[in-house]
Amino acid sequence: MNHHIHWQARAIPFQTGESVASALQRAGIHQLGRAPTGQALAVFCGIGQCQGCLIMADGQVTEACLQICRDGLTLQPLDGDADV
C-alpha cells in the first residue's frame, strides 16, 4: 500500500484494483458531501445503482463505488460538508 489517492487534502492508501468507495470507507470517510437537497451523500448500494456516492474524481463527476483507485487520483466532494 504505498500508492495514494487524495481525498481533499488527505492522502489515503489503497489496494490495487479497489474502488474509491472502499478505500475511503477503510479510512473512516462515510459522508462524501451533501446534495443541494440537504441529503448526505454516502455509499448506499455499492454497485453503481443509487448514485448516492457521487464525487469529483480528477474533475469528473463519478460514482465512488465504481471508480477504481489509481495513484495520485484527486477526489473532492461535489458539494457541501464531507468527512475529512
Partner: peptide, 22 residues
C-alpha cells in the same frame, strides 16, 4: 445516514477484498 448501506454493498466489499467494514 452515512454508514447505513445495503447488505449487498457490504457483501460486494467482502467479495472483492475479503475484508469486513470497519
Amino acid at each position: 445516514l452515512p454508514g447505513v448501506m445495503t447488505a449487498g454493498a457490504i457483501q460486494s466489499r467482502i467479495k472483492t477484498l475479503a475484508e469486513p467494514p470497519q
